[in-house]
């Protein structure tokens, strides 16, 4: 069964047609990177899958079930680590567990376990404002993984932290998610990140009426080191191939490119 199946998805904001017939499929445990020019509708697509946006037409199925709203099987990690500022790291991680009926004690113990797993042991009592950007990302990751989603949607999850922290986060993230066997849909505008983390990379066309124009299989197995893989011989040509497709889409938006 597919983790995610999208057929002919169309979305409108008023008279603006954002998505014009998106087809996409994601296998169980597969990592799919979605790249595209800014503003093309990548995030909108993600929000449709999350059940936060109602599509105009088309089908979105998660593990065979049509999406009707936020689902416990789907976890989402946004660009901004939207942690509750008035809750400690532990309470933030425990929150989704509590929503799913865990007892306070159980939720607390699980939250501590997850904080340890993301490398934040001993920071449970800190408020988000007391943590660095990278640490907040880790809390958000623990929060979303704590309820063991089968499909994880990520919208630029590693933007807004510096390059080194970002690489460290990527490495840790790969391990944690691969362990859990979760399928991942990663939206990013960094195509090297998409290639280094994913099994497949899909390119979205420029809006309005965006579609998927191409998909590339990444010739490296997982688990892999997402930083080291950038030095592999097949990496460069793939970046080039994806970039050539992406460049045409960016050019269609009327931006000047010094090619």
């Amino acid at each position: 069964m597919s983790a995610l199946r999208i057929r002919g998805l169309e979305v409108r904001y008023g008279s603006h047609r954002v998505l014009g017939g998106v087809d996409l499929e994601l296998g169980e445990g597969e990592f799919l990177g979605l790249v595209g020019p800014s503003g093309c509708g990548k995030s909108t697509l993600l929000r449709c899958v999350a059940g936060l946006v109602q599509p105009e037409a088309g089908r979105v199925e998660v593990f065979g079930n049509p999406v009707r709203g936020p689902s416990p099987e789907v976890g989402i990690l946004f660009q901004d680590d939207a942690l509750l500022p008035w809750r400690t790291a532990r309470e933030n991680v425990a929150l989704p567990l509590r929503f799913r009926g865990a007892s306070p004690r159980e939720a607390r113990e699980q939250a501590d376990r997850w904080l340890r797993r993301v490398g934040l042991e001993g920071f449970g009592d800190h408020y988000p404002s007391e943590l660095s950007g990278g640490m907040r990302k880790r809390v958000a990751l623990a929060q979303v993984l704590a309820v063991r989603p089968r499909l994880l949607l990520m919208d630029e999850p590693f933007a807004s932290v510096d390059a080194i922290v970002r690489h460290v986060l990527e490495v840790d993230f790969c391990r944690l998610v691969a362990d859990a066997g979760t399928a991942v849909l990663l939206v990013t505008h960094d195509l090297e990140e998409a290639i280094s983390l994913c099994d497949r990379v899909a390119v979205m066309s420029a809006g309005p009426g965006a579609r998927i124009v191409a998909a590339y299989r990444v010739p490296f197995g997982r688990p892999r080191d997402p930083v080291a893989v950038r030095a592999e011989s097949g990496f460069g040509p793939l970046v080039r191939a994806v970039w050539d497709t992406l460049r045409m889409e960016v050019a269609r938006m009327g931006w000047e490119l010094s090619a």
Binding site: P85, G119, E121, Y127, S129, S132, M135, C174, R175, L176
Partner: peptide, 24 residues
């Protein structure tokens, strides 16, 4: 919980490394 009332600031360097990159 507000930053203006915070009493401590966790430094990134204080981060204990339990997830080791080598395992990757």
């Amino acid at each position: 919980w507000k930053p203006e009332y915070r009493s401590r600031q966790a430094h990134p360097r204080a981060l204990p490394r339990t997830v080791r990159p080598a395992e990757q």
